[in-house]
Design a protein around this nucleic acid. Structure first.
Lengths: 177, 177
DNA sequence: CTCCAATCTTGTCAGTGTCAAGACTAGGGC
DNA sequence: GCCCTAGTCTTGACACTGACAAGATTGGAG
């Protein structure tokens, strides 16, 4: 740990994720983050420039984590779907920010975003052709929609716990013949 | 048009919806709304109490609009799904707020919310039994997930315009045998 | 005509994001 | 050993925001 604080950047990102998970991005306060980290109110600015910068960094981190989770899930699209939902539940703040472009600078997240997209499409490609239907691309959007919607609804508290606990049966309905 | 402004309440809600649709809920400013409406900075407080109050009113309005749209769509669940997505695209700010409980007071939206839920379940009940699968409730969550996910992804700019233009083929994939 | 309740204004306060300027620290070149 | 530069953090300031209190204005009921 280097100087006064050492890994302030990491600490701020982690604390921001906590705060957002509890009270949402709208209530996020840089000064509050600084207080929790024990630094002055202007310290965050040095690492992230401004608030958008911090949220941009969070979004990038989120896309990287998602890409990892998806590739770790292997080639099966069902497992990828479950991994997608688990990621959202495990990192609600990242997930929240990632899909709200007004919260960050979209032009800075390119590479990280592409990595996630590639991981998603890879999962789709490994699926047997008959299950993909006549238009595989449409099936891809349907799959993304169902897991994304499931995750979003679960995070907002709109799905009962027992359903959230095992998303597999719900996802399977899209591919069941 | 009663007093100085007349229907300030309605104007503020409409302007808030515009502002949120453009820059997101986090950037919403009561003082800015007041300026746009041509009233003093404290005028909104009288109608909504505080910021949460305004967003709560928006959420209620959203649930009412959604309930209307769903019942107007008739008994078919495919049409209901399309109506759900069209509602989200037509009223992005309402939709955004409705599904972010940290933005408003959940204990004040009961009735409006129940009306929407009832309209949704009615659509599901009118569906022929074989399409609902072994567990109709799970199918309901799957249907909700796919249309909600589709709407959310579309609003965040993650779906190509031609797919958004006609969501039907994507939704149909869930029920196609 | 009076009075009242609803609506809006003015004034104020603490809290926030951002910028500018300066202070401190670590580590490398001499 | 010493300096000096780049990176890190602090201090101070400013405009803006949400919220509160107190007062002004208005339309309408009686």
């Amino acid at each position: 740990m280097g100087y006064h604080h050492g890994d302030l950047r990491r600490t701020l990102l982690a604390t921001a994720a906590e705060a957002i998970a509890e009270t949402g991005p709208a209530a996020l306060s840089l000064r509050d983050l600084a207080r929790r980290a024990g630094v002055s109110h202007a310290a965050p600015a040095h690492h992230f420039g401004d608030k958008l910068g911090l949220l941009t960094a969070l979004a990038i981190e989120g896309y990287e984590l998602l890409a990892e989770a998806l590739t770790a899930a292997g080639g099966d699209i069902l497992d990828a779907g479950v991994a997608y939902i688990r990621f959202a539940m495990a990192h609600p703040a990242h997930f929240e920010v990632m899909f709200h472009p007004t919260l960050y600078r979209e032009d800075e997240i390119g590479p990280a975003r592409d990595a996630s997209a590639a991981a998603l499409q890879a999962g789709l490609a490994n699926r047997p052709a008959p299950e993909l239907g006549p238009d595989p691309q449409l099936t891809g959007y349907a799959a993304w929609s169902i897991v994304h919607g499931f995750a979003t609804l679960a995070l907002a508290g709109n799905l009962p716990p027992e359903v959230v606990a095992d998303p597999r049966p719900v996802i399977r309905l899209l591919f069941a013949k």
